[in-house]
Design a protein around this nucleic acid. Structure first.
Lengths: 362, 362
DNA sequence: CTGAAAGCGCTTACAG
DNA sequence: CTGAAAGCGCTTACAG
């Protein structure tokens, strides 16, 4: 398979007429070497085409200069951007990146972590697929393996995390509508599983409860922001304005929007909790021949800032997604380098792009 | 860093009361072991929480069970899908994936390959950033390192590749318009750099010349397909119908489309060479209040099948992009496993989705 | 500043 | 079927 037999440090040492220890010192850049000897070794290495075998190096040093990533779903523009951030930071520090993904499946997550551990990564970046840190993650950090969570954070894991301020940004978006005078604002959101109690109860209490499963999920967090804005403005929320698509599907969002707009007491504005929901909303508006913003105002929480591409006129809140990756990688590498300060939860701020989709209530 | 000291095979062997060789045989699944002994070893391993150190294993076996990937741009939905395909196949065969990217930059590509080589990957999947295989790639395959190219193939590299049938699919798309009766069909394409000669010359000759730089690029290949369809139908192409956006930008495409439609002798149909171009075309049509397909028919080559999301009514040609990744990974793993048949260029077929955006010429 | 020796955690012939 | 020994390609104390 390798017609060109691999050159080892032993051969370089022989060629240069020094010991392997010395050759290692100059080639590995550790320890002392006289300029004279260093030159000889380097010449020999170049002549032979020497390439270090980092496996051997890692075996003895105990560090692999590699980080492991467990994405939730690679086949997704969000993680693609996160990966960009991670990759850039890793490369700049000479680290490699081993990529796996969990598909939001606990068993897959375990297998992925297992693989990464066997490959002796120095630390890992992971999007946990459950709110409550699973056993394998706990034993991981108990074992001292540096790890930073991305996109979401299991509430009981003593590990760093980098997430987005879903709640704050959603509140800001809804505030924007309230300030324009809107009082009946619909929300179209995924809101898939409600793990405890009813929607009504969730709304009434409206407080962050880290023990509640649903608060791990962005769409529920964004609903909390929607509620925050109303509470702060002293406005009672009508439960009918909260529409759960129940799935990450623009078709479901379209249907909910149609129902919302055809029902009695229709809202004057809509907050779409993500880009896919926004797409469904736009389709519904086309179906019903509703004009934006003359007849209805829209604000959209758009992870990937797709709206600027698809609907340049829509006001949106978006995040610098690649920063999730780069921040996570920077944090992780700091930990690996031995910076042992207390684990921190880092929250990335989202940005509100004011465009002309918001007018006064029709 | 590791409060839980790592358990080695030596400790497992001691616990089980056997030699490390025997412990290795049962834990590594190679060589013989009596059921009795195997059970003892496994029990000891479980008790101690043994995890194999694959670095050590790789050092001795010479195989790392890892493949390296050099993407052109991770931060891109196309490569995200390719990665999905690669990841799935790799996982199913117990391989890890080390990810790097070149940003279409030769120096980066070299660094990436260097990193992967030092990590001793068993083979690599790479999107070459130059048509002519650069020196480091040649020496790579001369050295016997299995490699498969994706998305494009350097013409002088004796390595496998998995690409898309850009030319054939574009021809099919344009054929579809010709069959509907169109005779003046515009094309909006990136067509960035023309490395040799003029556009006119390119069109006149219209044949595949692997030595020509531009034929590496999808948009030029798609132009060839456009020309093929015309030649086959015996129709002379009007150079004014070929519009080069010159960049992967929907705004540039919009401008070219406006010019095309406002000029004399306007076409009755347009072929958009990719999703971004199509988006620009749609914007131009909105600006000019042109209706599809009543006043103009459109067919779009859409890598990512975004049209079904953005413009469900548009006829498009799209590729099963993740298959590029899975086919590449399957090929690579076969090579690694020792299947040494001749390098092959694998061309993935694109699919034409007929929808209702094509009518007769207005 | 340099070298001889030991060792990282496995696997691989080679005996038995 | 099992074990003692050597070795993969490096780095790390330890002498000098």
């Amino acid at each position: 398979m390798q017609p060109t037999p691999k050159i080892t440090i032993t051969q370089v040492a022989a060629e240069a007429g020094v010991s392997t220890a010395t050759a290692g010192r100059v080639l590995g850049g550790y320890g002392y070497a006289s300029g004279d000897v260093a030159a000889k070794v380097q010449a020999a290495a170049r002549k032979l085409g020497y390439k270090p075998n980092t496996l051997a190096r890692s075996l003895v040093t105990g560090r692999s200069q590699t980080i492991g990533v467990v994405a939730a779903d690679i086949d997704n523009a969000f993680y693609a951007r996160v990966l960009r951030g991670i990759g850039d930071v890793a490369r700049s520090q000479g680290f490699g990146v081993i990529l796996t993904n969990s598909d939001e499946n606990l068993e897959r997550e375990q297998e992925a972590v297992q693989l990464l551990l066997e490959k002796r990564v120095d630390g890992l970046i992971l999007a946990p697929c459950e709110v409550q840190g699973s056993a394998h993650l706990h034993s991981l950090i108990a074992g001292g393996c540096p790890m930073v969570q991305i996109d979401r954070a299991a509430y009981d894991l003593a590990a760093d995390s980098v997430t987005v301020d879903n709640r704050g940004a959603a509140r800001e978006a809804v505030d924007h509508l309230l300030k324009a005078g809107h009082r009946r604002i619909g929300i179209i959101a995924e809101l898939e599983r409600l793990e405890t109690g009813s929607l009504e109860k969730f709304v009434r209490q409206g407080a962050y409860d880290p023990m509640k499963g649903e608060t791990l999920y962005p769409s529920w967090q964004r609903l909390l922001g929607y509620l925050d804005a109303h509470r702060h403005a002293g406005i009672q929320v009508d439960l009918h304005l909260i529409r759960r698509a129940g799935a990450y599907s623009s078709e479901a969002a379209r249907q909910e929007t149609v129902q919302l707009l055809q029902g009695p007491d229709r809202p004057t504005a809509v907050f779409a909790a993500d880009g896919t929901m926004a797409h469904g909303v736009m389709q519904a508006l086309a179906d019903l021949h509703v004009q934006v913003p003359q007849q209805l105002s829209i604000v959209c929480f758009d992870d990937l800032d797709w709206m600027q591409f698809m609907q340049p006129a829509i006001t949106s809140v978006h995040q610098p997604v690649h920063r999730i990756g780069s921040m996570a990688a920077e944090l992780l590498l700091a930990r690996i380098a031995g910076d042992a300060s207390v684990p921190k939860h880092n929250v990335l701020e989202a940005r509100l792009n004011i465009r002309d989709s918001v007018g006064p209530p029709a």
